[in-house]
């Protein structure tokens, strides 16, 4: 199961992709940017566990944050909360699945099922 319906911003003039919100296209300068939903394979690029948070997130520690890449659109990366469950540990290269966005931004979870090779 690949990730589906990840909201990103696309420049209507030159087709560059960005993590929302972007107010102008850094490639062509256009302000005609739209939110589109994209699908693809999402992988952990790097990760950390936050144990000393900003005060507003004090009741959430420890929590995992990862940079997630979308293989189909090179250069597009998401700073995200990632949910891990049980024995399945977060590691660079592991596949994750998009589960939605909320006030904290993007959320992914480690892909369940067959162990990673």
């Amino acid at each position: 199961m690949a990730s589906k319906n990840i909201p990103v911003m696309r420049c209507q003039k030159c087709n560059s992709y960005y993590v929302p919100v972007k107010y102008s296209c850094n490639s062509c300068g256009s302000r005609e940017l739209e939110i589109v939903k994209v699908d693809g394979t999402t992988l952990i690029y790097s990760h950390t566990t936050i144990r000393i948070p900003p005060e507003v997130y004090r009741d959430q520690v420890p929590y995992d944050i990862a940079l997630v890449i979308l293989q189909e659109i090179p250069g597009l990366m998401f700073t995200s909360r990632v949910m891990c469950s049980g024995e399945n540990k977060i590691e660079i290269g592991k596949e994750v699945v998009f589960t939605g966005t909320d006030e904290l931004g993007y959320r992914f979870e480690l892909k369940r099922g067959m162990p990673d090779v």
Partner: peptide, 17 residues
């Protein structure tokens, strides 16, 4: 910042990679 990433967290991501 809204994700809960901190400056130490940023450098932790760099270290891991």
């Amino acid at each position: 910042g809204k994700t809960g990433l901190t400056f130490p967290g940023f450098f932790a991501l760099v270290a891991q990679r």
